[in-house]
Design a protein around this nucleic acid. Structure first.
Lengths: 238, 238
DNA sequence: TAGATAGAGTACGACTAGTACTCAATTGGA
DNA sequence: TCCAATTGAGTACTAGTCGTACTCTATCTA
């Protein structure tokens, strides 16, 4: 985006007719501009709130800067002074309300996995999920966004997941070989797939199925040894 | 709709005043309209080809009906007579070039899984992947599309996957309990996640990791009930 | 061969993206 | 305390797309 800067041609006085409009409605004092104005964080928050509301109501595809501005009772200029485009605005709006993943530690692997997968599912419901859907399409135009999205959405569940698995490994119920980022992505990935394919909300039964049919069978320690498999060349068997 | 107005600079001269041009270059007969016209399938194919080319070149976000029409040397009217919107056009264009999943049957589970996951990865490269990305954003406005996308993209890999697993189960290397649609989605889901997060092409090493770290450990049969079996159904064969 | 169908080209109204400019209200520094 | 700089609100403008409609004509069909 934003390449041909096209340095302004010789512009002359363009605004001609605004005098008449402002002149006739208020003879003396308070026109529409006389209200106290929001600034800084207050205005920022109002814009974020409007953005998220638009996401929720209309979805990313129908979210326009004009409508966000109108809803926030701000001007387009104020939006463009802060964000170069819709994409960045939405990213920041989402980030401003980012739900933290809290690593559960109940001592019960299955319960912890259910909790964590539930958090992943919850994070996709509401405006955040809409944004994820919508921003996917922008990625082609904006490779930088791909990195952001990856960090914010895909990778954010990995450390908590690995921590849960690590604690399970310490207790001996998780096989250590499963402590890899890829394995940690399996559960969250299935949740996200399901969201993409079926939308929100994500049924708790589905979350339970993911845990019981996939994640647990994949990571659980087996009686005689570590990995359930001796694949090609790997397996330095202790 | 209103995915409008990209700051796109590739201006296509649509509204040229062609009267002058046609008026002076041809006094009597053949104007610009005199060329033979394509119809039916021939025109359809040209439009599909133009759509896929636009997808590949510019991505879904920058794909406009005007550009597709120009590229196909067709008129917007011809496009709108066939498809009510960009969404349907792209869906049909993708469908017209749908790669069939071929169920591999080498007798070697790991090899078959690698082949099948490779097919899933391949299907996301090129215009099809672009379309999947782009259509995700339309889903909110068009719930019908969600069902289509699910069938075309998500579910299409499940039957071949189940078939590969079923054959493995017959050979005794796959535990029968893993023959569920959810388990069958794990591998393809990870591939799609990776595509969404990293784009195309998808490294063969990643595909191998999915198979070796996730799919095989998940489905492989264990000695007694749940205990791991000694070997996978792969590497032992010459 | 005449009528029906459909493609090409064009025009148009409605809408949004961004930019730019005016004017007023805060803010912050001297 | 006062004034200059900053910034929000409102507006206008250009460029570009959407979707529809209308004309003209090539091709198909009865």
């Amino acid at each position: 985006m934003r390449e041909t800067a096209r340095p302004a041609r010789p512009k002359l006085a363009v605004m001609a007719s605004s005098d008449a409009a402002t002149g006739d409605d208020a003879p003396g004092a308070d026109t529409y501009r006389n209200k106290p104005r929001r600034r800084g964080d207050e205005l920022n928050d109002a814009i974020y709130a409007a953005t998220l509301a638009e996401l929720t109501e209309s979805g990313y595809a129908d979210l326009t800067m004009e409508r966000v501005a109108a809803r926030a009772k701000a001007s387009k200029g104020s939006l463009y002074r802060r964000w170069p485009s819709r994409t960045e605005l939405v990213v920041d709006a989402i980030r401003s309300r980012q739900p933290e993943h809290v690593v559960p530690d109940s001592g019960d692997l299955r319960a912890d996995l259910l909790t964590l997968m539930g958090q992943v599912a919850a994070s996709l419901e509401g405006p955040r999920g809409e944004a994820v859907r919508g921003l996917a399409v922008e990625v082609t135009r904006n490779p930088e966004l791909l990195r952001t999205l990856r960090a914010e959405v895909m990778d954010s569940a990995v450390p908590p997941m690995l921590e849960v698995l690590r604690r399970g490994a310490v207790r001996g119920v998780v096989r250590p070989a499963s402590l890899t980022p890829l394995v940690a992505q399996v559960g969250p990935g299935l949740i996200r797939q399901h969201f993409m394919a079926y939308g929100a909300p994500i049924a708790t039964q589905f979350i339970a199925d993911v845990v019981d049919q996939v994640v647990l069978p994949l990571v659980i320690a087996h009686v005689d040894g570590d990995a359930p498999i001796a694949k090609a060349g790997s397996a330095a068997r202790p």
